[in-house]
Simulated assay, not measured.
Amino acid sequence: YIVAIGGGAVLDMVGFAAAISHRGIRLIRVPTTVLSQNDSGVGVKNSVNSFGKKNYLGTFTTPVAVINDFNFLKTLDDRDWRGGISEAIKVALIKDLSFFEWLEQHAAQLASRSLEPMKEQIMRCAQMHMDHIAGKDPFEMGSSRPLDFGHWAAHKLEHLSSYRVRHGEAVAIGIALDSTYSYLKGWIAKEDLDRVIVLLQNLGFSLYEPELSGENLIKGLREFQEHLGGQLTIMLLERLGKGVEVHEMDHAMIEEAVKMLKDWNQEAISKS
């Protein structure tokens, strides 16, 4: 056995090493961050960045046990406390409206580092991720990865910022971008988009980073297709609580969505 104690990057690194050593060593994960406790720690993937790309080398290895100790959360700085909540917003938006509404109702408590609602958020989010992974495509042989909602832009943003923008922060921006794109497509109403944006802002997330603009972001679509290993499949919102897959994205509409996020973010900064 090997026991990995740490955040998502540490768990991935140790899990990758365990998977390729002696044809596999049994892995126990002890995730220590919100993001790893509610998402990556309960998954089956281990990967490391290589060749200038995120998660380029990796394996599928099911851990024999995952131990979530909530006391670790007390040691986190505010960025890592907040960052993992974006993964809960992600899964709620594509799968469970009632969970999204719960997050709206408890946003102030989560932002102020109240431990009890954070525990519930982690347990609900982790259960939804496990339920999905245990479904029809746990090892991602198809071209669809619903749990990657908001991630195509997030992966590119992390790389473009030289990982100054952490994963959870990048996912929050990616969620905002794809939700805005869904609104521009006419799939969700403006009031629904406003709810997503307000929730992200109430939790303290930025909606925009300078690296989000320009042709490099569009290149992220092609890289994400390579990451999928097949047809481009992007998860958008048909409505709050229900995702819909598309196989192409309008570049001009992406740029319009980015501009809207930039304006909203600047407005929030001005008010503060």
Score class of each variant (00 low, 15 high):
residue 28 I to Y: 00
residue 162 S to T: 11
residue 232 L to F: 00
residue 77 D to H: 05
residue 138 P to G: 10
residue 73 L to E: 07
residue 184 L to Y: 04
residue 88 A to G: 15
residue 137 D to Q: 09
residue 208 Y to S: 14
residue 51 F to K: 10
residue 146 P to E: 09
residue 179 S to Y: 04
residue 50 S to Y: 08
residue 43 G to K: 08
residue 141 M to E: 11
residue 177 L to A: 06
residue 7 G to W: 12
residue 81 W to Y: 02
residue 193 L to Y: 03
residue 184 L to E: 06
residue 271 K to V: 12
residue 118 M to P: 01
residue 90 K to I: 10
residue 102 W to L: 07
residue 113 R to D: 04
residue 119 K to N: 03
residue 101 E to Y: 02
residue 145 R to D: 04
residue 113 R to M: 08
residue 228 L to D: 05
residue 166 R to M: 12
residue 150 G to N: 06
residue 13 M to P: 00
residue 138 P to Q: 05
residue 205 F to W: 09
residue 258 V to D: 05
residue 214 G to I: 12
residue 219 K to E: 13
residue 44 V to H: 03
residue 67 I to L: 15
residue 123 M to H: 08
residue 182 S to D: 03
residue 215 E to C: 09
residue 29 R to S: 07
residue 106 H to S: 09
residue 219 K to G: 15
residue 85 I to W: 04
residue 84 G to Y: 03
residue 77 D to W: 03
residue 20 I to P: 02
residue 67 I to R: 04
residue 17 A to M: 12
residue 147 L to N: 06
residue 264 W to D: 08
residue 219 K to A: 13
residue 247 H to F: 08
residue 28 I to G: 02
residue 193 L to C: 07
residue 141 M to H: 09
residue 14 V to T: 03
residue 234 I to W: 01
residue 117 P to V: 05
residue 204 G to K: 10
residue 68 N to Q: 12
residue 64 V to K: 12
residue 36 S to N: 04
residue 194 D to F: 01
residue 246 V to G: 02
residue 112 S to K: 09
residue 187 W to Q: 07
residue 25 I to G: 06
residue 91 V to W: 02
residue 84 G to H: 01
residue 158 E to A: 12
residue 176 A to K: 07
residue 122 I to M: 09
residue 169 E to I: 08
residue 51 F to D: 14
residue 44 V to Y: 05
residue 216 N to E: 15
residue 56 Y to H: 14
residue 228 L to Q: 15
residue 206 S to G: 00
residue 218 I to H: 04
residue 93 L to F: 01
residue 219 K to F: 03
residue 4 A to P: 01
residue 86 S to Y: 02
residue 97 L to E: 13
residue 269 I to Q: 11
